[in-house]
Simulated scan of single mutants.
Amino acid sequence: MNNNLATWFELPAADLGRAQDFYRHVLNSTFKLEEMNDMNLAIFEAEEGAVSGMLVQGECYQPSETGAVVYFNGGADLNEPLAKVEAGGGRVLVPKTPIHDGDCGYFALFIDSEGNRVGLYSPA
């Protein structure tokens, strides 16, 4: 077991296909599709041992702009995925912003295609 504090995340999706298209477009993500207990799942494919998660469509999962925020790796420069947000059906809330004058990297916030508030982080 690794020492990551977070080990898994689940992002609600009203339309699982639309959500997959959004994250394919913005983050170049790929997915493994599964069904479990009346839920449809699109699991983000990741390297062995990496923290990952899934998009989930089910009765108890409702997208939200006010819930917990998941931050995705924005790569070397988060301006690249951030530039794809609106074309993918999302909305930028906070543009690339330095954390402590950039000493701790940069973050941005957006609303995804499903209405979830999501973050991006990059070191530069």
Rank of each mutant, 00 (worst) to 15 (best):
G88P: 03
G119N: 08
N4T: 13
S29C: 12
V92H: 06
A6M: 15
D38H: 07
F107M: 15
R18K: 14
E34N: 06
H100I: 13
P98K: 11
P81G: 08
F31L: 01
L82D: 03
N116D: 09
F9C: 08
H100E: 15
V118N: 05
P123A: 12
L11C: 03
A46L: 03
N4Y: 15
V85E: 02
V26Y: 00
G88F: 03
V94F: 06
T7H: 12
L109D: 03
H25A: 14
K32R: 13
T66Q: 15
E65C: 04
K32H: 07
V118C: 10
E47Q: 12
V118H: 02
D38L: 03
L78M: 14
Y121V: 12
V118M: 08
S122E: 13
A87T: 10
E35F: 01
Q57N: 13
P12R: 05
A76G: 05
M1P: 09
H100C: 09
D101N: 14
P12F: 00
Y61M: 04
G58Q: 04
S52Q: 07
M54P: 02
A46G: 11
N40D: 04
P95I: 07
P81A: 09
I43K: 06
V85W: 00
G88V: 06
L11W: 01
A83S: 15
K84M: 14
A50V: 03
N73S: 13
P12V: 00
V26P: 05
N3H: 14
Q20K: 03
F110R: 15
E80W: 02
V69A: 09
D101P: 02
D15V: 00
L27D: 07
P123S: 13
V94S: 06
G58M: 06
F31M: 01
I43M: 12
Y23P: 02
N3W: 12
A19S: 11
G102L: 13
M39F: 03
E80C: 02
L5I: 15
D103V: 10
A68M: 10
E59C: 09
G75H: 09
G58W: 01
M1Y: 15
E45F: 01
G88T: 07
D38N: 10
L82S: 03
F72Y: 09
P81C: 10
A42Y: 00
G105Q: 11
W8A: 07
A76F: 02
Y106N: 12
E86S: 09
M36K: 13
L5H: 12
G75D: 13
A6Y: 15
I111H: 08
G58Y: 02
I43E: 04
V51E: 11
Y61V: 00
F9L: 09
N40W: 00
T7L: 08
D21A: 04
E48T: 09
L33T: 05
G75K: 11
E59W: 05
A68N: 08
M54V: 06
D103M: 11
V56L: 03
Y106K: 02
D15N: 05
S64F: 11
A76T: 10
L82M: 06
Q62E: 11
S52W: 02
A19V: 00
L27N: 05
G119P: 08
L93K: 10
G119E: 07
E65W: 05
Y106W: 14
M1Q: 11
